[in-house]
Design a binder for these strands. Structure first.
Length: 443
RNA sequence: GACCCCAUCGUCCAGCGGUCAGGACAUCAGGUUUUCAUCCUGGAAACACGGGUUCGAUUCCCGUUGGGGUCGCCA
């Protein structure tokens, strides 16, 4: 029997990280078993299942590169099959019609539970049992003639030949019903694996209130798909030992339900951030460029000279942890209209002799034979020794003067990249600014 | 409330009867660096509790406590 798993989201416009983790496990398990991973869009809620909402599902899967191996099934197209199954259950006596609760809404179709204790084996939770007394009959077709989730879900799983149902453990109670439905429909029940929830710091189901909760948000925030995949895969599953950074091939190789946690896992954005950084630095510079450039463009800073931009990214090293941070961290390389961190600027200029040193260094820079980083460093160091001043006293004001901030790449690489003219102009402007700050306030 | 599930550092995991209880993130203290980031070194930090079983329990069993889930003509 070849393994067939499925991800069956109902399109709501967003794909929650808990759901996508279920998709990841379905994908991993199918790959590991050499089987197929399928997609079924449960779009029976016409209100919410808009084309945009459906597209959001596809977009999320595409981004994470876990698209289905076969064309997706759209549940809304399966109504006839669902109803036919209900008829079959009606004629075999496994279901009956009734105006449940005497609502006056008319008769609905109700599935008759077998009346015996039910049990099933869960790959993650173990053997689960429920006494007959706790298993009540339930509606499978509403009085308005529409099929209910349980019926549709089971009928479609049969149609798709699903062998393993891997989903959130909020479905555990439903599983007894589903198993009974499979049996009544004369189909073998699939194997089940119920995943624990992803929770917040309070132990409650992780929701939008707790921060980014949807796949699209992580994408927009500049996270790498592979990093999110890796993080989510390890949130509740471990390959054993101390391994954390794994390629997809390795995860497929190692995936096993026996190593899936059966207790809830708390989502930790800081660890995701760290992991994203790890993936980021492993990315070839060439691949990073497009992303950095895209962020600059988003902020209206698209550089005319990409070779120059490339140098900027290079000297930034691994300081940029998120592609959405590129513009913010490199503005001053791409415009003269960059923000100045007032606190950092004042602090740097308050150093003893800062302005005097700056003015003299500017003079020497203007006539420096070379503007290469190493030569600039020698120049500044020489000046420092000459005046008996520690280099830090010179470097900090210089940095603040040319970048408006106190963080960034190595100062001399920065000066070289910025170029002689801009450095000169900025130092002059910074000196004016410093003088203005020092001048007594008047109104 | 009923039924079910769960329980190792703050967090995610390792451990599958005998370990100085390990790693990662976060955190703290140093070091390297012109800043930041990186990097290096070191520290603090956990087996919820009570009974069993056993020569021996973090590990197996049962309770307690705590947390979570489910109880729709939603999915």
């Amino acid at each position: 029997m070849t393994v067939r798993t499925r991800f069956a989201p109902s399109p709501t416009g967003h794909v929650h990280i808990g759901n996508i983790r279920a998709a990841i496990y379905n994908w991993l398990f199918a790959r590991r078993a050499g089987g197929k991973y399928l997609l079924r869009i449960e779009d029976t809620d016409r209100e919410r299942s808009t084309p945009e909402a459906v597209e959001a599902v596809h977009a999320a899967l595409r981004w994470l590169a876990i698209e289905p191996d076969e064309p997706p099934m759209y549940q809304s197209t399966r109504r006839e099959a669902h109803l036919a199954a209900a008829e079959k259950l009606l004629s075999s006596g496994r279901a009956y019609r009734e105006d449940k609760g005497g609502t006056g809404k008319g008769e609905c179709v109700i599935f008759r539970m077998p009346g015996t204790d039910m049990r099933f084996h869960d790959e993650i939770k173990g053997d689960l049992v429920k006494p007959a007394a706790d298993l009540k009959d339930f509606v499978i077709v509403r009085s308005d003639g529409s099929p209910v989730f349980h019926l549709a879900n089971v009928v479609d799983d049969i149609a798709m030949g699903v062998t393993h149902v891997i989903r959130g453990d909020d479905h555990i109670e439903n599983t007894y019903r589903h198993v009974a439905l499979f049996e009544a429909l004369g189909a073998p029940a699939p194997r089940y694996a119920h995943l624990p929830m992803i929770v917040n710091a309070q132990g409650k189901p992780y929701s939008k209130r707790d921060g980014a909760a949807y796949v699209g948000e992580f994408r927009e925030r500049g996270f790498l798909a592979d990093a999110l995949f890796n993080y989510l895969a390890l949130l509740g599953w471990s390959p054993g030992g101390d391994r954390e950074l794994l390629s997809r091939a390795e995860m497929i190789e190692l995936f096993d339900f026996a190593r899936v946690q059966s207790s809830p896992a708390q989502f930790d954005l800081r660890k995701l951030l760290w992991m994203n950084g790890e993936y980021m630095r492993r990315l070839p510079l060439a691949e990073r460029e497009a992303q950095h450039l895209a962020d600059l463009a988003r902020h209206g800073l698209a550089p005319a000279d990409t070779a120059y931009a490339r140098r900027v990214f290079e000297i930034m090293g691994d300081r940029i942890k998120l592609f959405t941070d590129t513009a913010a961290q490199t503005v001053y390389f791409f415009t003269e209209d960059y923000p100045v961190d007032d606190r950092a600027f004042r602090k740097a200029m308050a150093r003893e002799g800062a302005q005097e040193h700056l003015a003299e260094i500017a003079r020497r820079l203007a006539t420096a034979p070379s503007f290469a980083a190493a030569d600039l460093e020698n120049l500044v160091r020489a000046y420092g020794e000459e005046r008996g001043v520690k280099i830090g006293q010179l470097v900090h004001p210089l940095r603040a003067a040319v970048s408006g901030t106190d963080v960034g790449p190595g100062l001399f690489e920065m000066l070289e990249t910025l170029g002689r003219e801009r450095v000169a102009a900025r130092i002059a402007r910074a000196l004016d600014r410093a003088r203005a700050l020092a001048a007594p306030a008047h109104d």
